[in-house]
Amino acid sequence: MSRFHWSMHVVCATAATFLAAVLIYTVMTLPSEPAGLARLVEDFMNVSGVEHPVTAVLLNFRGYDTWLELGVLLVAVLGMLLFQRQNDLRQIVRMPAAEPVLDWLIRLIAPMMALVSGYLLWMGKYSSGGAFQAGVVLGAACVLLWLSGHPSLESLSGRVFRFLLTVGFSVFMIAGALFMLSKQPFLTYPVATAGHWILLIETAATFSIAVTVAALIMGLQPTYSETEDQP
């Protein structure tokens, strides 16, 4: 299945094994009980606005990286739209309506998924959860609806679709820039309301991530105009 001669396989396999050996040896030399950053995070938890350390790091202490990561997601969708030569999902072929039992099941499950998504979003403050988990569940619900022939993301107008894609990144940026008016560095939240700002940002991000993830799946499906598509 590869056009390489078997000797090439041997060479690459040997090289990979050698690399693994070197890396494993290095791993053995790593300290096993270093002072991680957990202590430092613990010290600042009370001013972070949330009660879960990972959420605090993601959305407050190192929120800059999370914001940029939303940008990476956005560029991925931009790329997908570019390659598919579409501006939104309206050209996607509608799937046929699912058979009655499956249809009933999906009508039951999809709203529950929306509920679970909201729960995961809320739980981000107290435990594992937050925007990404909630967004992926919601996106999966959108894909499920489309698979069974129900109206889903492809019935959104172009403007609404693009707005939803960018709302997470934009709200994060605006919230971060707002307090620059009072001479604070970018992405500083006032201690008292930090929790609320984080929830606002996470909510916007949930919608963005849901639409992004669903679009990345649905965007690769056949479209009505595919047969006329000239290479």
Binding site: E33, V41, A56, L58, V72, L73, A76
Partner: peptide, 28 residues
């Protein structure tokens, strides 16, 4: 590694960010 109050959150945050970035790049 270090079993103090909770596992080190910074590598976990790096991981979550990395997963999303890898997801985006893969989809692309």
């Amino acid at each position: 590694r270090n079993s103090q109050a909770f596992p080190d959150p910074v590598p976990q945050a790096m991981l979550l960010t990395g997963v999303v970035v890898a997801l985006s790049a893969t989809a692309f």
